[in-house]
Every structure is written in structure tokens, then in C-alpha cells.
Design a protein around this nucleic acid. Structure first.
Lengths: 181, 181
DNA sequence: TCGCGCTTGTGAAAAGATTCACGAATGTAG
DNA sequence: CTACATTCGTGAATCTTTTCACAAGCGCGA
């Protein structure tokens, strides 16, 4: 498959595809394009998704559970192996083979299960504390739904998801075209 | 409040804050900084969030409902006024004062309720069709959770949310530091 | 009123990202 | 074996974003 075709699929340009790939090595064959299977395998390796990641879900509220039950997660190699919530109502309940645990069991579970990524889906007030505890217990990356900026060491990447901001971005793009409303 | 302080809070630099704000006008006072209340009011206006937006939720699965019940939405001016789902089990059920409707009622509801934004939380197969129907019915922006690139006219902004990709981004950032694992 | 300590707004410089354009490979067909 | 049609990888050119740096403005206190 040529860079031209890859570009069309990825909503970008052929030059961009080639430049981006060149940062990680030389993947293609001149005159031929890129061998799809091999390219995919090498990209998976570069992205670190050529393996399974054990994920811990912190916060079994609506958003947390929605994620947990989202089949695409497991299908893509992100395996949710533990759930934590401070609500006594929820502790002990089983969800898809995983029992909701008290947060006091957090550190122990991280170590015992080899949890490297956590999904933080707790109220803003609890997010920083759980992030810190995660980092101390050995967590290596955080997907954060709480609308605060987590303070963690730079070696631990954080991806923030703020859905209100996404809607606001839409609002801005719509509004900016109208001089006044 | 000075650009310096705003920068510290927003994880950026003072120069960036000033440059960004200058694109929209002159907000501050030299020697003094920015008047917080006025700045906020003007930014809200620029972002188009100085009003309420009527939002339609398409897809009452886990993710859709999680969003619907997320209180921060309404609190920030995004009011979910209708829910659509094709599952007969769900149609007719009431959720927080809103009844789940059959998708056949979609266009009519968009017009009747003045829905300008939709949240697409349906399987990938159904996403393009509902996007097109939304655009035709007058929707002006789409928050898309389906893992496909929607084909809509450029006047309709789309914000994509792909949580698997967010996890993959973490995976990459963690893996890139280790020569080989 | 004047001088001083701050802070903005903004051109100019620097850094970064994208696009261009072309030499060098590669397979194919004759 | 040669000519040709492709397509990659990549320096150079262009475009964009960020940072720098400083004149001009503001309030305050003497």
C-alpha cells in the first residue's frame, strides 16, 4: 500500500505519512509502497500494543463502568483486571468476572496483578490522592477523567479526557462564524 | 490576575496566554493584569458558552447514558433534551425526565426541540447514517464516540473521542523509553 | 506631579511542523 | 539486459507556532 493510499485513509498527506514513518525507521519499498502486515506489526511494536496491558479501574460510577464494559478495550489489549470504589454499596459486587474492591486494597492489587495503567473515573476531589497512590504503587500511566490537572512525576504520562471541553470546542467552532447572536 | 498566574494554572507560559488572548482582543490592563470576572465573561462569550445548548443523545448504551447522567454537562450549559435508541427494550423508558425515543422520531425532535448538538454514541455501523440525518435535520455540531471518521459538510464541526486511542497513547509514551521489552 | 515597579500587547527571532521536490530503489515488461 | 513507471526517504523551502524582548501603559506613593 502506498503512502498516497495510507494518507487518504488517515485524512492526511502522502508526504506526512512518509515523514512520520521515517522517524521510526525505513518501512517501505521504493516503487512498491508499504507491506501492510509488516507495517502494522512494526507499528504495534512501536506503540507498545504488541502485548496486553493490565488496567485498573478506579471509580465504578457511570463512566467507569461504561468503560469497563466497552468490549473494544479488551479487544485491543487493555485488560481491566481490577475495579475500586469507595461506595460500600458497590464493594463486593461482581462485574464481568471482576469484583469491586475497597480502595484500601488498591496498592496491594496493583502489585499483585501487575497493573501498569489506571483509569481514574472518580470525583475531582479524590483524583489527586488516587493518582499519587497509584504512582507510589508502581502505576506507569493514567487515563484521567477528573477535571483537574494531576500532579505526578514526569515519567508517568497522563491523558486527560474532558468531555465538557469537547462540547465547548464544538460550541466555539459553531459560534465563531456568527458575528453576533 | 497576571498572565504569569494564568499560565501557571493552565500549564503554559505567560507569553502564550497573552498571545492567545490578543487574538480575540485586548483584555488586560498593563501593570495590573486581567480582570478575572470580565475576562471570564468575555471568554464565555467568545466560546459561545454564554447560553444553553440543546443536546440530543443518539445511542442509549453504557457510554451514552453515562454522559447523560453526568451532572457537569447540564451545569456547564449543555442540556440533554432527547435520547434516541433503536433497541425496543429501551424505547419508552424514562431517564431523568427524558424518554428514550425511536430513531424514526429523530428529525422531528431535532426541529421541535431546537437541538443543535448531538452526541453520537452508537455502534460504528450506525454512526454515519445518524450523522447524515442529523446534519440534514439542522444539527450544527457532533460529538462522536464511534471509531470512524464521519463524512459531514465542513460547516458542521465534529469532535472525535476515541478512548482506545488514549490508552494507546499512554502505552506509546511508556514503551518508547524502554529500548526493548 | 513625578518616578518607580509591574504587566500588557506585539513585532521580531527562534523553533517546530508541513510541504515540496527529487535522487535512488524496486518491480515489470519487452 | 534495458527502459520505464512507481514510490520511498529525505534535504530544502515554506508555513505555523512559540518564545523572546521591549516600548507603552497603568496605579501607587511621595
Amino acid at each position: 500500500m502506498s503512502s498516497e493510499e495510507l494518507a487518504a485513509r488517515g485524512q492526511t498527506t502522502a508526504a506526512q505519512v512518509r515523514k512520520d514513518l521515517s522517524h521510526f525507521g525505513s518501512f517501505g519499498k521504493r516503487g512498491l509502497g508499504y507491506p501492510v502486515d509488516e507495517l502494522r506489526a512494526r507499528l504495534r511494536r512501536i506503540l507498545g500494543i504488541d502485548r496486553t496491558w493490565n488496567v485498573g479501574l478506579v471509580g465504578a460510577g457511570r463512566i467507569g463502568l461504561a468503560l469497563f464494559e466497552y468490549p473494544a478495550f479488551r479487544a485491543r489489549g487493555f485488560d481491566c483486571v481490577a475495579i475500586f470504589d469507595s461506595d460500600p454499596e458497590k464493594i463486593g459486587r461482581e462485574l464481568g468476572g471482576v469484583v469491586v474492591q475497597d480502595p484500601s486494597a488498591f496498592e496491594e492489587a496493583v502489585r499483585a496483578l501487575g497493573i501498569e495503567l489506571i483509569v481514574l473515573a472518580v470525583p475531582a476531589e479524590a483524583a489527586q490522592e488516587m493518582a499519587q497512590r497509584g504512582v507510589d504503587a508502581g502505576v506507569r500511566g493514567i487515563l484521567n477523567f477528573a477535571p483537574i490537572r494531576l500532579n505526578v512525576p514526569p515519567r508517568v504520562p497522563v491523558e486527560d479526557v474532558n468531555l465538557v471541553m469537547e462540547l465547548e470546542a464544538l460550541s466555539f467552532q459553531i459560534s465563531k462564524d456568527e458575528p453576533d447572536a
